[in-house]
Design a protein around this nucleic acid. Structure first.
Lengths: 219, 219
DNA sequence: TTAATTATTTAGATTTGTCTAAATAATATT
DNA sequence: AATATTATTTAGACAAATCTAAATAATTAA
């Protein structure tokens, strides 16, 4: 099955939005892909035709087994390229998403497996997301909660769920990156903001909105 | 100036065919791009509009200064990716062309310069072709002649001009690659075939056609 | 349960890059 | 120089991916 770049992007986004067995709606997908609902309907017909999604008018979409397989291959390539850019070319983790978005569309099983091998067959990308193996098998994600839900005092940052430039820039300014150790000092119930301390730095306060997008694992 | 992948491929092919100041013809470009002359004419109008080529009806095309600049950037990316695939991912030099053909279209100055740096700012790609620097400056190609014109007895293979799978497979079978040392034993005037010897291997005979496509440098 | 709102789809148009078939220009041949 | 051949361009069509505006279905609220 040979997909166009556009089709790959749709499949990837449906995968991303599907989370479990949720049905993906037309509007949600249009928003995710920064396109119009009418365009999504058009593409949905094509993907159904190719047996990559289940789709009935007005009922939303879910990936078929074949579609999920495709999605996992794309995700695999995306995350491996992110590793490459960070580990080998010294990009910072907030810069790599866009580039990986392009590199992921080079479809070569041989390239992908060689790249993976070269990187030491990593299990997680720089954002902490698991990398599917060649068969599409995902390593169980590390036990993690969002910072606003965490009860532990000492935690490590394992992922950031919102990839917006705004958030990533904010975290960068505060010197918070993957692997950064945080100590939770105080949880203010009034607005759910959190006071944290990073080693050798003065404590800072983080809004609930930010805390929700920082994933952590107890140390 | 933001070019589509199709436009980039046209610019690159015109650059390739232009060699010096030759005017590129519609048919030659159509053949190179494996497309139809009518399509070439269509695209020529667009590229002229964008000031990347000089073009008058029935008179062929040449790149403008701006067009040549674009071409050199694409060529730079292509050849750097070839280096990466061979040096880092252990691909053999005859496999990398197609993959580089795709990777070259990721347009990021930062990625390109980081990649170049990571590879040690190489001056030549695995086929022996010079890599333009960030400003589009080309290193003078190494002094080389085709094997059929070479007068030296001992030579090194520096490049292969014909990238066809057939030739590359042939060379592979004979264990001839970039950097291979050859000793010219005999030049048969009858059919211009050449008898050569590779270290620790029995002598082999090579047709004029093959010899024309193997570039060598005296040792 | 009807009306209002929101979500989704359809119809028809647009852009990019391509094609075939026919027309025209340039070049080669006699 | 007239004719034949080859190269190039034009005209008109098509597929992919998108869009806007209008129509229709589903959902929510009164």
């Amino acid at each position: 099955m040979n997909l166009s770049i556009a089709e790959e992007n749709y499949i990837k986004s449906i995968y991303k939005l599907q989370e479990g067995d949720t049905v993906v709606t037309t509007n949600a997908l249009a928003y995710e892909l920064e396109t119009k609902p009418a365009s999504v309907t058009d593409m949905a017909k094509k993907l159904k035709e190719k047996l990559l999604i289940d789709y009935e008018k007005y009922k939303g979409f879910t990936l078929t087994t074949e579609g999920r397989k495709m999605a996992l291959q794309i995700v695999r390539r995306h995350r491996l390229w992110e590793c490459f850019l960070v580990d080998k070319l010294s990009f910072s983790w907030e810069e790599v998403h866009e580039l990986a978005e392009e590199l992921e569309h080079v479809r070569s099983e041989k390239l992908t497996s060689r790249l993976s091998e070269y990187l030491g067959n990593p299990l997680f990308d720089p954002h902490g997301d698991p990398i599917p193996d060649a068969n599409g098998k995902l390593t169980k994600p590390r036990p993690q909660t969002s910072l606003d839900q965490s009860t532990a005092r000492k935690v490590v940052v394992t992922a950031v769920t919102d990839q917006s430039t705004a958030l990533l820039a904010f975290l960068n300014a505060k010197h918070i990156k993957l692997g950064t150790q945080l100590e939770v000092i105080e949880h203010y119930e009034y607005d759910n903001s959190i006071e944290i301390k990073i080693k050798q730095q003065p404590p800072i306060t983080i809004s609930e909105q930010v805390a929700k997008n920082i994933m952590v694992r107890p140390v």
